[in-house]
Design a binder for these strands. Structure first.
Length: 781
DNA sequence: CGTAGGATGTTTTTT
DNA sequence: ACATCCTACG
């Protein structure tokens, strides 16, 4: 964002600040804004919809608006509700507001994600939801384990009705703001022969027993409380004088209802609610986001002012043109036209076709190194992938190259087993009713408490409608447990009592250390001989260290439930690798967009499940990807890719064809088996009919060409990925095959190897003629 | 009760 | 390819 260095590094205006000084400050922060932006900042009263295209200074408007409200003393920080979708966005806003107004950030307790604010409100009124204020927030994993227990208790075959599927249904219902009683019979019927609603109700009841809430509840319970207790809602009406919502196009029905309830303190036409969004960047439809929310804002809040931000300060006109042309293929949009303000045509976009994903990674690595030699920083480059499994190969390549990279949103720290175990201990200390956590660690490390014992605990808990810990206490009074297990459990509970007591007089991070020691958990990993156990011990230390940043154990646990991402340290120069979804809102000089292949991007699954809407969402994702680039956008596609262990050949993504040819260079190609030909777009310049007759430059192409030069005409070389690569006990670069050997191929039948190149074999098939195939497609005849 | 090894499902995206 | 779940055995 081209915001000039901000001159506002000054303390917040104190009571003695003069009118004049304030007027001056106002001038300062309004300075670099264009007319529309300024209007969006100054229109503080009444409903306002800001349609902000990519790179038009959306965050700047939001933060300046808050700064404006604060400096004008229209409201205090605690009276502004400001919701974002992701933690990253919330963090960034806090930072930028801090820069604008100085120290006031701590005074913005209601700036956060929907879920963190929902949790905050729910904790205050927990008793109205049959919870205690220290309730545990369940993640998907816990949720599924709980559902499994329920299915088990109901004698529902988990094979036929997978817990995961029910978890998804629950999510959908909760995202739509539906309580058990609101679920339609049709919806209910779609699981376990009509038992859906009952299970939902049982699940909710079980959550109360465990003193727990899932993600959906954080908002849904808010909504229920607001509806059932008008005095509570009235309190928040008084509290929130201004409401701001970021990325409104990503909000779902529950979030919409939540906002609408909170905005009801005034007549709709006077509500001080400002939503900012871009329908072209709506990419969360799959988890219940309703673009409709943004489309009907004017109906919900009559008289709402609508401001469009269309001046793009980020990308060159070539990039902008490519993105606009692409997104114009979508039917359902409000329609905005981005105008460049950068004033540079810039480089053309490039599309590179490579043989496989390995070569794609190599290609990207080379280019990055080349730019680096030209003095560009790694921080200014990013690789945006459709699916996280694309990351691995890139990482491997960068490791061999010694190229610094960072992965955003990859495997999460808090999802590691050892971390989750440690947290389970802490959760039980904080909330002894948390049966899921108790169950997780009751026999970790091994204490000789096996399935049958745990089953007994479960049965007792269910019969008494209570949690595992108190069920255990009950059992200890009886003879039902075998003596050995009885002693073990008694000791374990005594330990937990002891730890809970210690929490009063000890910093929680010291307690955590003692817990890990005394429970034998640390010792367990120390005794473990596997190569990753040192790393796990290191992670545990890191966990304890990170606890020091929090005031209380509760605060820490809240953080890890809601803020799953780690703070990314940007100190080092490194290339960023992340998914397109997590790239929204970011920008880089150079953006690499690998994997533009049919099936992967647009994702087959998305199209299967949502049809045209799915495709349009994928296209918006492509739009997001391209508009991340400021100066340079490089797309690529691999003709062959290994997905879940099997090779698949792919066609270029239709999105490539939708790019305007005049701003795209088709750099190196060699794509498109099967004679498939696209129309007039950029991909029109791929030589699909016979890719082996043009001049190409990539090493991969030349290799392919060397192998296949003799292939003429012949049928389309379509390969329906089938055989899983066999693990062969031969050095990695040596092929298990040799020339002259007879082999069998699922599609082409028997043949004889005529040449070997890496994992690619040229084979003279008895029936199909000479073909080049991947080694993993054939077996020895 | 615990373990090893095989069968199975899974992953597109995230709070 | 990977992780989790399941089953058979010690």
């Amino acid at each position: 964002m081209p915001s000039p260095a901000n001159p506002l590094e000054r303390p917040a205006p104190g009571p003695i600040t003069s009118q004049l000084a304030r007027a001056q400050a106002k001038l300062d922060y309004l300075k670099g804004l264009n007319d529309e932006q300024r209007e969006a900042v100054l229109t503080t009263e009444g409903p306002l919809l800001v349609l902000a295209g990519a790179g038009t200074g959306k965050t700047r408007v939001l933060t300046t608006r808050i700064a404006h409200i604060l400096t004008e003393r229209k409201a205090r920080g605690s009276e502004i509700l400001s919701v974002t979708f992701t933690n990253k966005a919330a963090r960034e806003m806090k930072e930028r507001i801090g820069k604008l107004v100085g120290s006031t950030v701590e005074g913005m307790p209601w700036l956060g994600t929907f879920h963190s604010i929902g949790a905050r409100i729910l904790r205050r009124h927990a008793e109205l939801a049959d919870l205690k204020s220290d309730f545990t927030i369940l993640d998907t994993d816990d949720q599924i384990r709980l559902i499994k227990q329920l299915l088990d208790a109901e004698n529902i075959d988990e094979k036929r009705w997978p817990a995961r599927q029910f978890a998804n249904m629950l999510d959908t219902w909760k995202n739509r703001g539906l309580l058990p009683k609101d679920v339609s019979p049709a919806d209910s019927g779609s699981f376990a022969n009509g038992r859906g609603t009952r299970l939902y109700a049982d699940y909710q009841a079980r959550l109360k027993v465990l003193n727990a809430a899932d993600f959906g509840d954080l908002l849904l319970e808010n909504i229920r409380i607001f509806r059932e207790y008008p005095d509570v809602l009235a309190h928040y009406h008084r509290q929130f004088k201004y409401m701001l919502v970021d990325e409104y196009q990503d909000s779902n029905v529950a979030q919409y209802l939540w906002l609408r309830l909170l905005a009801q303190g005034k007549p709709a036409s006077e509500a001080n609610i400002c939503v900012v969004g871009d329908d072209d960047q709506s990419i969360y439809g799959w988890r219940g986001a309703e673009v409709d929310n943004i489309l009907r804002f004017e109906k919900d809040f009559p008289g709402a002012k609508v401001i469009k931000l269309e001046r793009n300060y980020r990308s060159t006109s070539n990039i902008l043109k490519a993105a606009s042309t692409l997104i114009a293929n979508n039917e359902s949009r409000l329609g905005k036209t981005l105008q460049t303000d950068v004033g540079e045509t810039g480089e053309k976009l490039t599309v590179t076709s490579v043989w496989d994903s390995e070569e794609e990674a190599r290609q990207i690595g080379e280019e990055i190194e080349q730019y680096q030699r030209q003095g560009e920083s790694l921080n200014s480059m990013a690789i945006l992938v459709r699916a996280s499994h694309q990351m691995r190969e890139l990482e491997e390549r960068f490791i061999t190259l010694g190229l610094n990279y960072r992965v955003i949103g990859g495997p999460r720290f808090y999802e590691r087993k050892e971390i989750r175990d440690a947290i389970a201990y802490l959760r039980v200390i904080a909330n002894p009713a948390d049966s899921l956590s108790f169950e997780r660690i009751v026999n970790v490390p091994k204490r000789g408490l096996g399935d049958s014992t745990v089953q007994l605990l479960h049965n007792t808990a269910r019969a008494a409608n209570t949690n595992l810990v108190s069920a255990t206490r009950m059992l200890l009074e009886t003879e039902e447990l075998k003596p050995k297990q009885r002693t073990t459990l008694r000791e374990l509970l005594a330990q937990f009592d002891d730890w809970s007591a210690r929490l009063q007089g000890l910093p929680h991070y010291e307690l955590a250390e003692q817990v890990l020691d005394e429970s034998g958990y640390t010792a367990m990993w120390q005794a473990d001989k596997s190569p990753d156990s040192p790393g796990r011990l290191e992670n545990l230390k890191e966990l304890v260290r990170s606890m020091e940043e929090f005031e209380t154990l509760g605060g820490f646990l809240e953080h890890i439930s809601l803020v799953m991402d780690r703070d990314t340290v940007e100190a080092e120069d490194a290339v960023t690798i992340m998914t397109l979804h997590s790239a929204k809102g970011l920008e880089y000089d150079t953006v690499f967009l690998p994997g533009w292949e049919e099936g992967l991007f647009p994702s087959q699954r998305s199209m299967d499940e949502l049809g045209r809407a799915g495709l349009e969402e994928e296209r918006r994702l492509a739009y997001v990807g391209i508009t991340r680039g400021k100066k340079r956008v490089r797309l690529s596609m691999a003709q062959n890719r290994r997905i879940r262990g099997l090779w698949q050949s792919a066609l270029p993504s239709r999105f490539i064809d939708e790019l305007p040819p005049e701003v795209v260079d088709v750099k190196d190609t060699g794509s498109g088996y099967g004679g498939y030909t696209y129309g007039g777009g950029a991909a029109g310049r791929f030589n699909f009919a016979d890719p082996f007759e043009s001049v190409y430059n990539t090493p991969g192409w030349q290799r392919a060409k060397a192998q296949q030069s003799s292939r003429k005409g012949g049928g389309p070389l379509t390969i329906e990925g089938e055989l899983v690569a066999r693990s062969v006990d031969i050095g990695s670069d040596r092929s298990p095959y040799e020339t002259g050997q007879r082999v069998f191929h699922l599609k082409f039948g028997y043949g004889e190897i005529s040449a070997i190149e890496g994992n690619k074999l040229t084979i003279d098939f008895d029936k199909a003629g000479r073909k080049k195939v991947l080694e993993s497609f054939v077996s020895k005849a």
